[in-house]
Amino acid sequence: MSLSQSQSGRLAVQMMSHIRHALPAVLAVGSLVLIWEGYAWFSGVSPTTLPAPSRVLAQAFEYREALFDNTLPTLRATLTGFALSLVAAFLLSVIVDFVPLLKRALFPVFIISQTLPLVAIAPLVVLWFGFGLLPKILLVALVTFFPMLVALSKGYDATEPELQQLLASMGAPSWKIFWLARLPSSLPFFFAGLRISITYAVVGAIFAEYAGAAKGLGIYMLNAKNNFRPDLVLAAVLVSAALTLSLFGAAVLAERLTMPWTRRTSTGGNSR
């Protein structure tokens, strides 16, 4: 009884410290929005040039069905492309870990693939693969594949040498050393890569849609711009930001669930 009370007490303290931690950021964003709102009201600038935040929100609500309708394809392209990229990056990272020669041969190619400007590549990919889901998936995979591959490779190499020596002395073959030591050692790197890549993924999908699509946030932004509706462009931007943040949050949550040991240290006091 007293234990659960002290636990809930600690939870409350944690909440307070979280709120205090977030306060400066909330204040900064809040005052920016207020300044924008005030400027839009008092400068007399036309809403077709700079709509006030309140107008953006109102229009977002008004067009919620259209926005929702266009968010789903973007989400689908992002998640499918990212999943594909993760699977490919993982498989190749394993192969490359066992065949270092392949790493030296392939990594320069991947680095070059990362230097290609998205603006130039997106229309070409649409030209080659049409207006369907495929070019979006490919572009998302293109922007997220290499960061994930590098994160995994770096993670494997971060394995403690003594741990590998220990396993080798126990007679573990190299695949077992990989499974027992190198793979778990790569988890922190994997999740660091995941958090960054998931934000790239959304940007990649929107770029692909911008270059040509039937539906999606990217094409919705383009059409809104062409119809002189910057309020709807910003509404779509708002949705894409919310989408990115939710995916980022999901990645952080997955990290916490997968790596429970990182939150328990000798100061954490869960030891009996």
Partner: peptide
């Protein structure tokens, strides 16, 4: 046939 049990420097415990 691997007659040794080896204890490395530091502890080499798996943090996970």
């Amino acid at each position: 046939g691997r007659p040794f049990a080896f204890m490395p420097q530091r502890d080499a415990l798996m943090p996970w």
